[in-house]
Structure formats: structure tokens, C-alpha cells
Design a protein around this nucleic acid. Structure first.
Length: 610
RNA sequence: GCCCCUGUAGCUCAGUGGAUAGAGCAACGGUUUUCUAAACCGUUGGUCGCAGGUUCGAUCCCUGCCAGGGGUGCCA
């Protein structure tokens, strides 16, 4: 491969090589080889080349474009268009390219041959994984996501880590990597001390019997309210906070009563959380909470101390990293360990047990400083071969544009409420569209409740996933439960309409898929849809390289648009000839499979009828 | 104080060192004897916070400023 930057819409090209992404259908590397050869034939230098091969900005220019000629021209002191023309003249990829055109100040616009594209679509269609195949070599990823505090009910703020993490796991698995997901529950920190303190002093027995988790959550909020505010100058003298710290420390030191209570609370909390995961269709390989690492914490601090990393400071043990920066505390004055200690133990354990190439933390961007410290300590301490990444995401803001905080006990929509509302709306829309008024769609009567859940939860997930994870966003009920425009519902609907064609046509899917025919891309609509289908691989790669599910939602939107235009303009069952009908059915079926698979990578299900 | 992030259409947000900066929603107008109208088509809407700099080319990179937010030794 040449020294090109292969750009998948701005993704990090070197990652493609580093992560060993090499798939038979990879077009960009083929183009890179061809263009490198052309540049060599011209006698132009190809080192330090800032050129780029990418999808065209506008379909009217072609399919792909090469932007390197302008930079090269500057280096050579030649007119940019002349350089572009010479590269174009020497560019020879006769099987793949139909046209190579120089345009504007020196762009090289490339158009793929229809027969080549068609053959690629056949390859995709014949492949179970739609031409994506296996990464070579597969890498091991540990992905840490969701990680709620078990003592509190999940709310909209927990949604992002949970569904973004799940989607990243699905994408990396689909790309052929080994993925280990781990829900690092907050089940051992100060929040338990708070609950223990509340339980011992302010318990409402009746509530606890009726709704134990609800009562624990209430206690948490109640006790938090009694803390001195952050403005007060000396929080170390706060008696309530001190008492909570004391309960935490007792738990950590093996106090019998606190251990017993912890063991009583945990199954209740876990059951509550599991309900949400079941609804969201999210599963973990491990649920190793903070408590899981408790036996190793002493050893961690000891080891850090031995290496001279941790030193005593005001009675606590801390690691000083940078001048002027506060130390990272690994053991508090009262002997309790911190989440820094737990996170270090967790890294150690993951490195030893899984030997991963990457460990991803899908966590709120506000914890950036923590991860910076954590990674720095871990690298010095363990010298792991694993790369550590904080896959951060922005905050969910309230209507006042300020982050929703639960520490202060803000009232926020619970996740259950959100999912209920979305499901309720889905049922409403579904019913209104199922009236026997002649113009309605096929009424799916069998499992209306289940269908509404698929649509409603899909809508909620899509609303979150379609946003770039790094930016904050304002929480909005209507947006979260919207079912028109660029939403999961739109994709599910496109899928359902697509399947309807096959039902109406009485097509035997198994026979049809075995008996694949060549796909005609004669009309502009067919061509555009085919092109979009072909780009599936690039979209998944890009999403995987950047850990960004919203790349997939953008792709889906483009694909669904292309399909809608095709659907509108190209009759399938009533196509002019049997051959054209079969070709278009082939396009439809491939579209359905790509839609379904991409939605699956987002953790969203489809319905055969809507 | 120090560190980090953000600023793009009325609202919510995409996007990119390259061609005329895009969607959804909202508003307005149109499409249903034709494979599902949860759809489609069209119109309106922008000094990409401000000012410099680097570059053949900057909304994107750099610096400063303004505005908002976050973090910051005993919460996680």
C-alpha cells in the first residue's frame, strides 16, 4: 500500500492498518495501490503525500475522489490541474474504474464501473456477514460500560454509556474481534456507605418491605441532602459525611453487620437493574463490580508503594503525577480505598486474565481527569501492552441546559418511564395506522405490545446513538420518542415495507437467496442504492475505528433515503421484465439485510410488519 | 487560580484541510385507482461566536478574545 492517507470520511486512516482491517471487499486500498502506481509512473514523489482518497462530497462528481494532486503540485511547483491530469493519464484500474475525471482546481473524480459494482454486490449477497468477514488478526477488546451505581435507579443519564457501549461491542464483534464486555458496577463505594448510614438511621420499614430498591434510593437522596453544601469551607468536619465514610470503611474492613446488609441489598439492586437490561436487550460477559476487586486492593497499594509511586500524604496514600496537580488518592485517611485503587486493580486483573489489545471505558467525559490519572499510573505501574482508551461522551443536559445531576438528588426521568412513554406512543401510532380504512398498512395484530416495545425502545436508542457521542445534548422527551424523520422507526418502516414486497410477490426467500442473479444498476436510482449498499463495509469500519455509532446512523439514513427513492421510482414486482424484477428483488433483499444488520449493530430490532 | 470541553439555520444537532456547509423538527405548499402516507416532493431559513495567523485552499489546524459548561487530594 502506498503512503496515502486513506480517509473514511475523516476517520484515522492509520488505524485501518494498525488494527489489521483487511477485507476482500476493501475498495479504498485497491484505489490507493492504483493511485500510488500512477504517481510512481509520473515520476512524482509519493512520500509525505497529503493526498486523500475518499467518498465524493456530492454524487454528481462520481463515487470516490482523490484530493492529493493539489498538495503535490505545490511541492513540485507545477500547476495543480496539470499534475492531476498526468496522474489521471497514468491511473490504470480498468476492472474497477469507469471514468477518471479532473475537475475544479485539481480534484480527481473516480466513477466505478457498474459491472464491477454489481459483482461486489453479488459477493456481499452471497456472504453471511455481508462482505465484512473477519479482522485479521482479530484483537481482544475489553469494553467497560454502563457501570451504574447499583444503589440508585437508572435514569436517562445512564442511557448513553449503556447503549453506546453495547453498540461499540456489537460493531467490534461484527468486524471479527474478540470482545469482552464488563459491567463494572458501582457496588462498593461511598454510595453504599451513604445507604448503610441511611438504613441504620432513617429507614422506613414499610417502604422497604414494599419496594426495597425504591426505599434505598430514597435513603440515598435523603442522606445526601444532609451533607454540607459544596460551598461550605470545610467538608471534613461534616458529621453526616464522616458517618457515611465510616460506614464505607467498616464495610471495606469486613465489619460483620455491614457485610450482611451489603449481601442483603445486592441481589435486590441487581434484580432491579436487570429489568432495564432485559428491556434494552443488553447482555454482559461479566458483571464484575467494584466489590469483585476488593481482595486485591491492599496488594495494589502495597505494590504502588514498593515502586515508589504512592506516598503518604496527610494520612492518606496518594500518587503525585504532575506538579501543581492534586495527587490521585489510592487509600483514604480512614483506610478505605478509592475508585482509583479499584480501577487500578481492575486493569491489572483484565491484563492478566484477558491480555487485551485495547481496554475501552465508555464513560462520561466529566471523568476525563480521572482516566488521565488512572491511565498514567497504570502505564507506569504495570507497563501493559493494552492500550487504554476513555471513550467519553457528553452530558445529558436538562431543559435549563445544565447537566442533569443525580448526586444532588435532582428529579430526572427514570429510564423505565422513558421507555414506557416511547412504547406507549409507538402503540398509539401503530393502532392509528392499523385502522381498516383501506389505505392502511398491514395490521400486525399478533403481538402489538411486543411490537410497540421494539419500536419504542428502538426510537429511544436511535435518538441517543445518532448523536455524536462527544457532544452534550439537551434532553427532550419529544426527540427521544420521535418516530418520524431520521429515527429508528423510519428504518424499521423501510424494512417492513421491503419485506412486504416479498410477501406480496409470494417469493420463497430461501430459494431466492440461493439463486442469486446479477444485479442491474441501469437506472440512477438503482445505481445510487447499489452504491450505498456497497459502502456498508466502510461505514462499519469507520464506526469501529472511531468507536462512533453515529457513523452507522448517518449511513442508515443515507441508505434508507436511497432505498426510498428507489422504491418510489422503480417498480419491483411490476418491473418490465422477469430479469429486471429478479434484479430489483435482489437489491431489495440486500437492502433489507443491510438495514437489519446495521440496526442490529445499534442494538435495535426490526419487525417484519408494521 | 489551574486544566478540559463546547459555540454551525427559529429549535435539536450532523459534518469536513478542499468544489455551492447539511439533516431532523418547526413553518408554508404539494403528492394516495400504482409493491405500506410511520412515506415522498418542493419552498423559506446561515457573517459556521469574534479577531488575527498558518496554508495553494480554513467552518475544520494555531494564538488571543468573548460567551456558556465541566473538572480540580479523602464521592464515583
Amino acid at each position: 500500500m502506498g503512503k496515502f492517507l486513506i480517509t473514511l470520511r475523516g476517520s484515522l486512516p492509520s488505524c485501518l492498518r494498525e488494527t489489521g482491517y483487511s477485507y476482500p471487499m476493501q475498495l479504498l486500498s485497491k484505489l490507493a495501490v492504483g493511485i500510488t502506481q500512477a504517481i510512481n509512473r509520473c515520476g512524482f514523489p509519493n512520500k509525505d503525500l497529503e493526498g486523500q482518497i475518499r467518498q465524493v462530497a456530492d454524487a454528481k462528481f462520481g463515487d470516490y475522489q482523490f484530493n492529493g494532486a493539489m498538495g503535490l503540485a505545490k511541492e513540485l511547483g507545477l500547476p495543480p490541474r496539470e499534475v492531476a491530469v498526468r496522474i489521471a493519464e497514468h491511473l490504470s484500474l480498468p476492472d474497477i474504474l469507469a471514468t477518471v475525471e479532473v475537475a475544479g482546481p485539481g480534484f480527481l473524480n473516480l466513477r466505478l464501473r457498474n459491472d464491477w459494482l454489481s459483482s461486489q454486490l453479488q459477493t456481499m449477497g452471497a456472504s453471511d456477514c455481508l462482505g465484512v468477514g473477519r479482522a485479521n488478526p482479530p484483537l481482544t477488546y475489553v469494553i467497560d460500560f454502563s457501570s451504574p451505581n447499583v444503589a440508585k435507579p437508572m435514569h436517562v443519564g445512564h442511557l448513553r454509556s449503556t447503549i453506546i457501549g453495547d453498540s461499540i461491542a456489537r460493531v467490534l464483534r461484527f468486524l471479527g474481534h474478540k470482545v469482552i464486555t464488563d459491567n463494572h458496577l458501582g457496588d462498593w463505594g461511598t454510595q453504599f456507605g451513604i445507604i448503610l448510614h441511611g438504613f441504620k438511621n432513617q429507614l422506613n420499614q414499610e417502604n422497604f418491605a414494599k419496594d426495597p430498591v425504591g426505599e434505598l434510593a430514597r435513603l440515598y437522596v435523603e442522606v445526601r441532602k444532609q451533607f454540607k453544601t459544596e460551598e461550605s469551607e470545610d467538608q471534613t468536619t461534616d458529621p453526616v459525611q464522616e458517618a457515611c465514610r465510616n460506614e464505607t470503611a467498616k464495610l471495606h474492613h469486613g465489619d460483620e453487620e455491614n457485610r450482611r446488609l451489603w449481601q442483603q441489598f445486592m441481589p435486590l439492586c441487581l434484580k432491579e437493574i436487570q429489568k432495564v437490561y432485559d428491556r434494552l436487550d443488553i447482555h454482559f460477559d461479566h458483571t464484575h463490580g467494584e466489590s469483585h476487586y476488593q481482595p486485591f486492593l491492599h496488594g495494589v497499594v502495597e505494590s504502588l508503594e514498593k515502586q515508589g509511586l504512592a506516598v503518604e500524604t496527610d494520612g492518606a496514600m496518594g500518587v503525585f503525577l504532575k506538579e501543581g496537580q492534586p495527587p490521585a488518592l489510592v487509600r483514604k485517611r480512614d483506610g478505605a480505598f478509592t475508585y482509583m485503587t479499584t480501577d487500578l486493580a481492575t486493569i491489572q486483573s483484565r491484563v492478566q486474565e484477558n491480555d487485551p489489545a485495547h481496554i475501552l471505558y465508555v464513560v462520561d467525559s466529566r471523568q476525563a481527569f480521572h482516566f488521565q490519572q488512572l491511565f498514567e499510573i497504570a502505564r507506569t505501574w504495570l507497563k501493559p501492552k493494552a492500550q487504554l482508551h476513555h471513550v467519553s461522551f457528553g452530558s445529558v443536559l436538562g431543559p435549563d441546559r445544565r447537566p442533569i445531576k443525580t448526586r444532588s438528588g435532582d428529579a430526572v426521568a427514570s429510564l423505565d418511564q422513558l421507555l414506557d412513554e416511547a412504547t406507549r406512543l409507538a402503540r398509539e401510532v401503530n393502532q392509528s395506522n392499523s385502522q381498516p380504512d383501506g389505505s392502511s398498512g398491514e395490521a400486525p395484530e399478533e403481538d402489538a405490545a411486543g411490537d410497540a416495545e421494539v419500536i419504542g425502545i428502538g426510537a429511544v436508542k436511535y435518538a441517543d446513538l445518532s448523536q455524536n457521542r462527544t457532544s452534550d445534548y439537551v434532553f427532550n422527551w419529544e426527540k427521544m420518542v420521535a418516530m418520524d424523520g431520521n429515527t429508528a422507526t423510519y428504518m424499521q418502516y423501510a424494512y417492513a415495507r421491503n419485506r412486504s414486497i416479498f410477501r406480496k410477490g409470494g417469493i420463497d426467500m430461501e430459494k431466492f437467496r440461493i439463486d442469486l442473479r446479477s444485479i442491474s444498476l441501469e437506472t440512477a436510482e438503482e445505481r445510487q442504492l447499489g452504491m450505498q449498499l456497497f459502502r456498508f463495509l466502510e461505514a462499519v469500519q469507520h464506526a469501529g475505528v472511531d468507536y462512533r455509532p453515529n457513523v452507522l446512523t448517518s449511513y442508515l439514513w443515507d441508505l434508507a433515503k436511497a432505498y426510498s427513492i428507489f422504491f418510489q421510482n422503480c417498480p419491483v414486482l411490476k418491473a418490465e421484465s422477469e430479469a429486471l424484477k429478479m434484479s430489483r428483488l435482489g437489491l431489495c433483499d440486500l437492502t433489507a439485510r443491510v438495514l437489519k444488520t446495521t440496526l442490529d449493530l445499534l442494538g435495535i430490532r426490526v419487525l417484519e410488519k408494521m
